[in-house]
């Protein structure tokens, strides 16, 4: 399991944020995912960009994306996890990663990431 998936209530710099992972942790996941997406799709990708709806995704991209999420966040995407809504945007992937790794939902400190699918 990666460092970011450990729910010890502290941020990477060691600060504690009310017993939950700080918004910095969520933001770091989002940043990593958007960086990956931007590189894989060869164009800037925002946290709420739906690259499937934009017609940018094919099977090879899906494989790269799921493989990246599995290896980077040390989790396994099972058949029952294959809901496209969990993978449409960087924000949704972040929520999926947090759900799979047991880290809490987005904190109030990052309202831009509190929307639900």
């Amino acid at each position: 399991m990666s460092d970011r998936s450990v729910n010890d209530g502290s941020t990477d710099d060691g600060t504690v944020n009310g017993g939950t992972v700080s918004d910095g942790s969520s933001n770091e996941i989002i940043q990593e995912v958007t960086d990956f997406l931007t590189a894989a799709l060869r164009r800037p990708v925002g946290p709420d960009d739906d690259y499937f709806a934009l017609g940018l995704a094919d099977s090879l991209f899906a494989l790269e994306l799921v493989t990246f999420v599995e290896s980077r966040f040390s989790l396994t995407v099972e058949v029952e996890d294959l809901d496209l809504d969990s993978f449409r945007t960087a924000n949704r992937i972040t929520r999926f990663v947090q759900r799979k790794t047991g880290t809490p939902e987005f904190t109030e400190a990052s309202p831009e990431f509190t929307e639900t699918p």
């Binding site: 499937f52 709806a53 099977s59 899906a62 494989l63 799921v66 995407v77 099972e78 294959l82 496209l84």
Partner: peptide
């Protein structure tokens, strides 16, 4: 549904 083809079915095929 092209998204089902390129995502759900593709990943199900992997497994």
């Amino acid at each position: 549904d092209p998204s089902t083809y390129s995502f759900r079915l593709a990943m199900e095929t992997r497994g």
